[in-house]
Design a binder for these strands. Structure first.
Lengths: 200, 200
DNA sequence: ATAAAAACATACTAGTTGGTATTTTTTATA
DNA sequence: TATAAAAAATACCAACTAGTATGTTTTTAT
């Protein structure tokens, strides 16, 4: 039983280091040896715990990337309070308060989405699942906003959800090629205009 | 003189094949040998024309990617006609009419942006330049719309431009992890709502 | 026609990659 | 404390990578 625990701890460490390296340099540019060096272990240990690199990639997506999106963008949506304010809080305040590191490296999910080829279906469905969960949570919130009369009735909740997610992921990529936050501030202003127009 | 022409023709072919392979599989997953095999030439020919892989990458961005964005998204913005209709035409109609291949593989510029690491400054500034050109053209059009009273006066043209670009690039990435166009249609509806709200 | 230069091919190197085979070390338990 | 299983290390391999060195063919200029 204690051995099982140690095994899980080791795997956790590998996944943690892998996430950081994948986030900073991409999955393709990161070798197993790189990950294991960061985890202060050797390749032998890796292949004792994992079948291959893809298995690690999927675990990083499902455990690290998923959790990040969940904690930062999905969970706050189910808070009590004015739905409009929650949207502003989640999409506006959050991006403002990102540390430099996160601004520079973009969104881990978006990085993955755009790095993988269209034939890597295992990665795709794992990523799609995160987007779908996010979208569903947004739709629920927007519908609540409609019920509580703080969001226009005659707009498609799905469409707004998808448009919000698209713009958010888009700017996280675009910000990477800039050296400053000016473009981020323009996005924020643009988002503010967008959100204001959703009010009845 | 004829040799100069042949040299340029060969380079054009290399750049063409490189663009296709980079677009479909990413620049990191594409080797020089892959490119030259597609171009029906050998590695020796490549290094006769190019210093290294990065020089090719930059040429692909500056010649192929830039031209694609320019022709598809920038040039139409300077057409005569109602600015609002031009925006709808460019952002709505264009994405609808994308062939399956383009939907599946996303936006070449966005793929590049999200594949490259944040230390690859040469690529970044080449990509930033494209975004900046696009943004400037959009701002010009939006300002014209304001002058001609078909776009609200009290909104920031820059912010709208950035928000439009962000959402467009974002959805092109997100679409890649889906197998169908439903998400694309939701984006289109979301964009339609957004554009309508810009009207006075 | 011929020499030089450009275009391209061939063969190679040194380093990296994902993955495997085998051995050593650690740990749990009887 | 002996032993079996799990964890980790070592050593390796075949394939691939960017890039180089050197050769051959083609084109151009004289």
């Amino acid at each position: 039983m204690q051995q099982e625990l140690k095994s899980q701890l080791t795997k956790q460490q590998i996944v943690q280091e892998a996430f950081t390296l994948f986030y900073e340099n991409g999955i393709k540019s990161t070798s197993i040896a790189d990950v294991m060096k960061a985890a202060k272990l050797t390749k032998g240990a890796f292949y004792h715990h994992y079948k291959n690199k893809q298995e690690l990639g999927l675990e990083v997506i499902e455990h690290k990337v998923r959790k990040r999106v969940y904690d930062g963008m999905i969970l706050p949506l189910s808070d009590a309070g004015n739905p409009m304010e929650i949207l502003e809080q989640t999409f506006l305040s959050r991006i403002k308060s990102f540390p430099f590191y996160d601004k520079q490296n973009g969104c881990p999910m978006n990085n993955f989405i755009n790095e993988i080829g269209n034939y890597e279906t295992a990665y795709q469905s794992a990523l799609k699942h995160i987007v779908e969960t996010w979208k569903a949570a947004l739709i629920t919130l927007i519908n609540r906003g409609k019920n509580e009369k703080c969001i226009k009735q005659n707009i498609s909740s799905e469409a707004v959800a998808v448009y919000l997610i698209s713009a958010f992921e888009g700017i996280r990529g675009i910000r990477k090629v800039y050296n400053d936050d000016a473009i981020l501030n323009q996005y924020i202003t643009g988002l503010q205009i967008y959100l204001d127009q959703l009010k009845p």
